[in-house]
Design a protein around this nucleic acid. Structure first.
Length: 580
DNA sequence: GCCGTTTTCGGCCCGACTGTTTTCAGTCG
């Protein structure tokens, strides 16, 4: 078992303990340990071998013993026992908005319900409203919540699926029997939610056996689900299916393109090829009189008279036509990013000092960052008061002196209050180099209220960037009810920047809305929203969203050099004051 | 569960909102 899988076990234990009604601190200890393991650079097995597990923060004797058992046996007696006491189906109920561990326990205790299906039936039969502590509203909320859950695409956020897919494919690539290997499907296209991992490998028929065996023994793999000719599907420990397609080496390029999809793009290619006298199938490309050798996907597009279409742009939209005209956008690349404009330090709920953030940013080759801690209303995050903001400014000054090559924006992530006012006075905000405004409360407001709230905030001259505009948490929380159409309109009118929050939990704006923002002439910022230095790397997920949205360097303000960005912010602010 | 220590157990981010009650418990961020 690797670190991530063990972290998943601890998260399950935490949920089950919570439903059981155990001490919240014990629950938190498991969650904390899961977090530590997931963020650990080295394999936890190393620490175990050296007997140094308890040196890890949040790992004591009890958790160390559980880690050792998992490493040695691949299973955990304690978890199995918990599962017998608390049916794992109850975990799904925790995902329902407004339903917490106590409500789940009540439902299970009184009605013996242990699955979403049973719960839905009970809600329809109006059996929930009479339980102690529940009422009609909760019953309706549960029905509504189940519908929402069903309407979500099933799968895992890209940030969880991608690292697993890469790790498995790298192991395959080391086999001498594997001539070529590539990710395909959702993961390769950078979809926000990955329904299934698909890996394509070029393998001679005689070598299939050993490749399949390696795949089945790869990290994350829990169990084999299906074996078909040329395809094997397994279930991963993170709850996702992964399929390995073994294809004859000469067919690799076409099969890779086919399995990368999506079907609409492939169909457009097939159509395009047919109209030009080719026959394109997953197994190869035929010219008028003969089979053509295709050595790579690039060559496939070239033979068809098309520019190479980056996987992120494949959607069956109009990309084939654009490729034919040589009119595809020159997509943003990770190395284009010059800085990060949304970071949290230990002044609020981040774990790293400003100095530490600066060092890590400099190491990444950034030329600027913005320190944007929370404002006072977010008390759980130790948000900053005007007084503490003044104190923080002094520390930022000191760090600036140590990093002359890195510009530090003194920023703030100010809360947008329930009525659209900001959580800090205008004169305080005016002292900051950059102001990100975000919603962190009152998620249940109606569409009109929420839209008005955000529009009010955008109209405030102090605001430079709207943070995570839709408020969604991938796979966990739907966007709040907001008319993004109107938000775009306002952003365009006031020259405001919209954020693509790159945290793999959010990816907000979505690619879809980022594309529309670009079309409306709005500039975007891709920000990691990191709370520790490791998460600076989340930038890559944001770049992925930007690529799917067809964004170029021009569209993204923190892909610009420092001077241009500062001018952009300064000019907008001056324009406002000139008009007022 | 872990941690730090006044070395053996008490403390562990907190406040707003909501729906259920009829004074508060549960959920959420």
């Amino acid at each position: 078992m690797n670190n991530i899988e063990i972290a998943w076990v601890f998260l399950e234990i935490a949920d089950l303990l919570e439903i059981k009604g155990e001490s919240p601190f014990k629950v938190r200890a498991y969650r904390q340990a899961a977090h530590v393991l997931a963020e650990l650079d080295e394999e936890v097995a190393h620490y175990a071998r050296m007997g140094r597990l308890t040196e890890l923060p949040g790992i004591g004797a009890a958790l160390a013993a559980k880690i050792e058992e998992l490493l040695e046996t691949g299973s955990l007696t304690y978890l199995e026992q918990l599962r017998r006491e608390v049916p794992p189906g109850l975990r799904q109920m925790l995902a329902l908005p407004g339903v917490g561990p106590h409500t789940v326990r009540t439902i299970f205790t009184y009605l013996g319900i242990s699955s979403l299906e049973e719960l839905e039936a009970a809600a329809r039969a109006k059996k929930l409203r009479n339980l102690p502590g529940l009422g009609v509203k909760t019953e309706l909320a549960i029905r509504h919540g189940i519908e929402l859950l069903r309407s979500r695409p099933s799968g895992l956020p890209l940030g969880l699926a991608f690292p697993a897919a890469v790790e498995i494919s790298e192991i395959l690539s080391q086999l001498s029997q594997v001539q070529k290997v590539s990710l395909a499907g959702d993961v390769r296209r950078g979809e926000e939610i990955v329904g299934q991992i698909i890996i394509v490998a070029a393998v001679a028929p005689a070598d299939q056996e050993v490749v399949l065996k390696t795949f089945q023994a790869a990290p994350y793999v829990r169990q084999t689900l299906r074996i078909e000719p040329g395809a094997i599907t397994v279930l991963l420990g993170i709850g996702l299916e992964a399929t390995l397609m073994t294809v004859p080496p000469p067919a690799f390029a076409c099969r890779l393109c086919y399995h990368t999809g999506p079907p609409a793009h492939w169909n457009d290619l097939v159509e395009w090829a047919r109209a030009r006298g080719f026959e394109l199938t997953p197994d190869g490309l035929r010219g008028r009189d003969r089979e053509l050798q295709v050595f790579s996907e690039e060559e496939l597009y070239h033979l068809l008279g098309l520019a190479f279409v980056a996987p992120e742009l494949r959607a069956g939209r109009n990309e084939v036509e654009l490729a034919a005209r040589g009119a595809l956008p020159e997509l943003l690349r990770p190395e284009d990013m010059q800085g990060d404009l949304h970071l949290h330090s230990n002044w609020s709920d981040g774990t790293e000092s400003i100095q530490g953030l600066a060092r890590a940013a400099a190491d990444r080759g950034y030329s600027y960052i913005a320190i944007t801690d929370h404002s006072q209303a977010l008390s759980i995050a130790n948000g900053l008061t005007p007084e503490r903001l003044v104190e923080q400014e002094k520390e930022i000054e000191e760090v600036r002196a140590n990093y002359p090559q890195l510009f530090l924006f003194s920023g703030i992530e100010v809360d947008i209050l329930a009525d659209g006012r900001l959580d800090l006075p205008d004169d305080v905000l005016a002292t900051r180099d950059i102001v990100v405004a975000s919603v962190h409360s009152g998620f249940k407001q109606g569409r009109e209220t929420m839209t008005h709230r955000i529009l009010t905030a955008l109209a405030n001259p102090a605001v430079d960037i709207l943070g995570h505009p839709s408020g969604r948490l991938l796979g966990r929380r739907d966007p709040y009810a907001v008319d993004l159409e109107q938000v775009l309109e306002a952003a365009q009118r006031y020259g405001k920047i919209l954020e693509i929050n790159a945290s793999p939990e959010r990816l907000d704006l979505s690619a879809e809305w980022a594309r529309r923002a670009k079309e409306a002439g709005i500039k975007l910022a891709i920000n990691s929203d990191a709370h520790d230095v490791r998460r600076l790397a989340d930038m890559e997920w944001g770049v992925c969203v930007a690529r799917r949205a067809g964004l170029t360097r021009e569209d993204v303000v923190n892909a610009w050099p420092l001077e241009r960005l500062r001018d952009y912010i300064r000019l907008r602010r001056e324009r406002v004051y000139a008009n007022s």
